[in-house]
């Protein structure tokens, strides 16, 4: 189905993904964009139902913009994750779940964060995380290569290796790797 990874570094956050969209046993697209940039400081990696994920991201983008305009400063990464999780929770409670597992990654006043948000409405803060059909394999690479002092450059390579390994063994992942880096420095520019 997908492999997505997120890594928190001491300089920001890194997201990685493959590019295959599967429709059952058929490959629907080889160039799927699974990493969505919400703004310069926040991005979301998508696993699961693409349409549900896109809707949630659109709402999150709009709410973030409104909050920033209304009160003058933006939502934190945790607040944005909670916003998305509230939507997925209400979906679950109404027996109409959003079939998604999202990795919300971004930088704010408190540094870089990775939050895993799934269709149950729960969010968990992680140093590194992976979702999708290739995630067990990706976790193998992440567990062995991740360390607390990882830099953005290093994390880019770790993310690439993790997605690449998953693509070798998971039929649901393949066709190329996308990587996005969000650096803490981007907040300096925003100011």
């Amino acid at each position: 189905m997908t492999t997505i990874v997120g890594i928190k570094t001491k300089e920001g956050v890194v997201l990685g993904s493959d590019k295959r969209a599967s429709k059952g046993f058929f490959i629907g697209s080889k160039i799927t964009q699974k990493i969505a940039k919400i703004d310069d400081t926040l991005a979301v990696a998508i696993a699961g139902q693409l349409s549900d994920a896109e809707y949630l991201i659109k709402v999150a983008k709009a709410e973030r913009k409104l909050m920033e305009l209304r009160r003058g400063f933006p939502l934190t990464v945790k607040e944005s994750s909670r916003l998305i999780a509230n939507l997925t929770y209400s979906g679950m409670k109404n027996y109409q779940p959003y079939f998604v597992e999202l990795l919300v990654a971004g930088v704010d006043q408190e540094g870089g964060h990775i939050f895993a948000a799934d269709m149950s409405g729960a969010i968990t803060s992680e140093d590194f995380a992976s979702s999708g059909s290739g995630s067990p394999i990706a976790y193998g690479v992440l567990e062995s290569m991740y360390h607390k002092e990882v830099t953005n450059e290093e994390a880019k390579q770790v993310a690439t290796k993790a997605v690449s390994a998953a693509m070798e063994r998971d039929p649901g992942s393949g066709n190329g790797i996308d990587v996005l880096v969000i650096s803490n420095l981007v907040l300096e520019v925003a100011r």
């Binding site: 009160r71 400063f73 939502l75 934190t76 945790k78 607040e79 909670r82 916003l83 509230n86």
Partner: peptide, 12 residues
């Protein structure tokens, strides 16, 4: 707090 898991800012 329910929606954003954080304290409200006074301006809002």
């Amino acid at each position: 707090r329910l929606n954003f898991e954080s304290p409200i800012d006074i301006g809002s």
